[in-house]
């Protein structure tokens, strides 16, 4: 479980997160949604210790994120940051292998090779595993980065807008892969999503944010409602139930 207690974050004087209290239970997929500038990515980065907290504390199971050794945390949670450019010439396989670094600190063993192989298979990368990252399409790169995150083998996976640059086929494919990872491998996935309907279709829980505050937090069905969406995005969004999922007609 991830516990967020009275967390505030300000960056160069501007308050981004204000007094956030939140509990993210173990298991399943939790989606963070909200308009641009709501603080979703900042919250995710704060959980992943990429940003210092101005106030409050975040605990991951029993570890306090601000004080626990970084190498210990890296064996419990993996973060895929928002689209960062990978410097240098690396092959897909090499990038995924880096996910095992927290476990071997340099000298990969057989279990590391197996984990890399499994990640390459799961994210459908085996046919391009020898390609250089800088020759990939945006979507292939996102999949490679997600595979690296998965190969870290942690209980918690934090992904910041992994659907960026993915076409509808691979966006759905990635969400379904994450679903399998959550269901069969028992991992806890926290994901920042822009597309409401991907959240509706694949997430178990939704945390809706606006202007650095949590507006709603609960099971998908109870958060994706016209009332809550209006208070999050500021306009009327019709919600229809299609195939058992609350689909928002936000483009109308």
């Amino acid at each position: 479980m991830i516990r967020i207690d009275n967390v505030s974050v300000s960056l160069s004087g501007t308050s981004i997160l204000e007094d956030i209290n939140l509990e993210l239970p173990r298991g399943g997929i939790t989606a963070l949604i909200g308009p641009n500038g709501a603080g979703k990515s900042t919250l995710l980065s704060a959980i992943a210790r990429l940003l210092p907290l101005t106030a409050g504390s975040i605990t991951l199971d029993t570890l306090e994120v601000a004080h626990a050794p970084s190498s210990e945390l890296a064996r419990r949670m993996a973060i895929m940051p928002q689209d960062n450019v990978v410097a240098g010439r690396l092959r897909v396989k090499e990038l995924v292998q880096f996910g095992r670094f927290p476990h071997h600190r340099g000298r990969a063993g057989p279990e590391d090779h197996n984990a890399v192989r499994e990640a390459l298979q799961l994210f459908d990368l085996e046919s391009i595993e020898e390609r250089f990252i800088d020759t990939l399409s945006g979507g292939q790169r996102q999949r490679a980065r997600a595979a690296m995150c998965y190969s870290q083998g942690t209980d918690y996976l934090l992904l910041d807008e992994p659907l960026n640059n993915l076409d509808i086929f691979y966006a759905r494919e990635l969400m379904r892969t994450l679903r399998r990872v959550a269901d069969h491998a028992g991992r806890t996935i926290i994901i920042v999503l822009h597309d409401l309907n991907h959240a509706s279709a694949h997430a178990d829980r939704i945390v809706a944010m606006r202007e650095g505050k949590i507006v709603a937090d609960g099971p998908t069905q109870s958060v994706i409602t016209p009332n809550i969406l209006k208070s999050v995005f500021g306009y009327e969004i019709d919600v229809k139930t299609i195939a058992g999922k609350p689909i928002s007609l936000h483009f109308l």
Binding site: A48, L50, P81, F101, P102
Partner: peptide
């Protein structure tokens, strides 16, 4: 690991 950039390096447990 440092070559992957600050955020990824921290994520991989590098102080």
């Amino acid at each position: 690991v440092f070559l992957l950039g600050r955020e990824t390096a921290i994520g991989l447990g590098v102080n």
